[in-house]
Measured scan of single mutants.
Amino acid sequence: MQVTWGNVTVTFSNPEEAKKYAEKVARKLGGQVELHNGQFRIK
């Protein structure tokens, strides 16, 4: 499962870890987490 924002992509084998990481990054950037085609995207 991947977490992407800007031109950065981070890949996780565990979807739960990916979700936690995406939420943490979104909080830092003041963005929203979207699940899109099996990727968490931060907008």
Rank of each mutant, 00 (worst) to 15 (best):
Y21Q: 03
N37H: 07
H36K: 10
G6H: 08
K43F: 14
R41I: 15
N7I: 08
T9E: 04
T11E: 08
Q2K: 13
F40V: 04
K20M: 11
T4H: 09
R27M: 11
Q39P: 01
N37G: 08
P15Q: 11
K28W: 13
S13G: 10
T11C: 08
K28F: 11
K20I: 12
A26T: 02
P15F: 15
N14D: 13
V33W: 06
E16N: 10
H36W: 13
Q32F: 15
T9A: 05
L29W: 09
K24W: 15
M1Q: 06
V25E: 03
T9L: 08
E23V: 07
E34L: 07
G30N: 11
M1Y: 15
K19T: 04
G31R: 04
K28N: 08
K24D: 13
Q39A: 12
G30L: 05
P15R: 14
Q39S: 11
E34V: 13
R41E: 10
E17K: 12
V3T: 01
V33S: 02
R41M: 15
I42E: 01
G6I: 04
K20D: 10
K43T: 15
K43D: 07
V33G: 00
L35G: 04
G30P: 02
W5N: 03
T4W: 05
E17A: 14
Q39M: 09
Q2H: 08
W5D: 03
N14R: 09
K28L: 14
V3Q: 00
A18P: 00
K20R: 14
V3E: 00
K43Y: 13
E23L: 10
V8H: 13
N37P: 04
T9C: 09
P15I: 14
V10Q: 05
A26C: 05
G31I: 05
S13Y: 09
N14I: 06
Q2S: 14
G6M: 08
G30W: 04
E17P: 03
R41K: 11
T11M: 10
N14H: 08
A22G: 02
N7R: 10
P15C: 11
Q39Y: 07
K19A: 10
Q2A: 11
T11D: 07
L29V: 13
W5I: 10
F12I: 04
F40N: 01
N14Q: 07
F12R: 01
K19C: 10
A18G: 03
P15N: 08
V8F: 12
F40S: 00
Q32A: 09
F40W: 15
V8L: 09
A22P: 00
M1T: 15
A26L: 04
I42W: 02
V25N: 01
E34K: 04
K19D: 02
I42N: 01
V3I: 04
E16K: 10
L35D: 05
K28A: 14
N7D: 11
R41A: 08
G6R: 07
N7Q: 09
K43V: 15
R27Q: 14
V10Y: 12
K20L: 13
K20T: 12
G30Y: 05
V33C: 05
V25F: 04
T9F: 05
V10D: 01
V25S: 02
E34N: 04
L29M: 08
M1K: 07
A26W: 02
K20V: 11
V25Y: 03
F12E: 00
I42Q: 01
G6E: 06
K20E: 12
G38H: 15
E17L: 13
T11Y: 14
E17T: 13
R41Q: 14
Y21P: 00
R41Y: 15
A22F: 02
I42F: 02
P15H: 14
Q2W: 06
G31A: 10
V3Y: 01
